[in-house]
Simulated assay, not measured.
Amino acid sequence: MRISDIEALHRLFAEVSAEGEFLLRAEPPPIEQMRAMLLRSLPLDLPQFIAEVDGELVGSIEIFPASFCGVEIGSGEDFGVLGMQVKKAHRGQGLGGRLMAAALEHCRRLDMGRVELTVLKSNLPAIRLYERFAFLWLEDLAPVSLPNGRADRPQKMRLLLD
């Protein structure tokens, strides 16, 4: 990922958010907030990758340390928090798997002990992808109402990298 990708990355987030199906927010974070996060994260060599098709950014993955994301770490052990987006027209073509493989390999090089994520129980293709990479169900979270009005339930999943 490069800082020059920020506008395309913001458009990707906006498109996936607008679907109202996979993210809890109806809109992406403000572009300046995303730019600041990217400027902060790039020098740290964190796992951040994009997928391009014919010069168009169509997918992204990032795995940030929980402490970097403001996630409470009760155990004191920092871990990676995964986020991934793929444009609807490009899902089911293996992009998510290639992004995941690259990001997890990078995590291993950084000696990250584990990666966690939250996924909606209705997002079966994503759950199958995560399970293919050995992520395991950790816990169900409280039910939510998605931007499209549909009720769903998020679940946490974890991958131990040791």
Rank of each mutant, 00 (worst) to 15 (best):
Arg158Asp: 02
Ala102Ser: 12
Gln85Ile: 09
Gln85Gly: 07
Phe68Ala: 04
Glu21Arg: 13
Leu99His: 12
Leu161Tyr: 06
Glu56Gln: 14
Ala126Pro: 01
Ala142Tyr: 01
Ala51Asp: 09
His106Phe: 00
Glu105Phe: 08
Glu139Lys: 15
His10Ile: 01
Asp45Val: 08
His90Gly: 15
Gly80Trp: 04
Phe64Glu: 10
Val119Gly: 12
Ala151Gly: 10
Glu21Asn: 12
Leu38Ser: 05
Leu104Trp: 07
Ala89Arg: 09
Leu39Arg: 09
Asp5Phe: 08
Val58Ala: 09
His90Ser: 15
Leu141Thr: 03
Leu136Asp: 07
Arg91Thr: 15
Val58Asn: 00
Tyr130Ala: 09
Gly59Leu: 01
Leu110Arg: 15
Cys107Glu: 11
Ala151Lys: 15
Glu139Pro: 04
Ala151Cys: 11
Pro47Ile: 09
Glu105Cys: 04
Phe13Leu: 10
Ile3Thr: 02
Arg109Asn: 12
Phe133Ile: 05
Leu110Gln: 13
Val119Met: 07
Arg2Ala: 11
Ile61Asn: 03
Arg40Ile: 00
Ser4Met: 08
Leu57Ser: 00
Ser67Glu: 03
Thr118His: 06
Gly83Cys: 05
Gly20Pro: 04
Ala51Cys: 14
Ala26Gly: 14
Leu39Phe: 00
Gly149Ser: 13
Ser17Phe: 06
Gly59Phe: 01
Gly149Arg: 12
Leu95Thr: 10
Val119Trp: 13
Leu138Thr: 02
Val16Leu: 04
Leu38Thr: 06
Leu117Ser: 04
Gly59Thr: 05
Leu136Arg: 11
His10Asn: 09
Leu42Asn: 06
Ala8Asn: 05
Ile3Leu: 11
Ser17Tyr: 00
Ile61Met: 03
Gln93Met: 15
Ala103Val: 07
Pro147Met: 04
Leu141Gln: 15
Cys107His: 10
Ile31Cys: 05
Val53His: 14
Met100Tyr: 08
Phe68Lys: 03
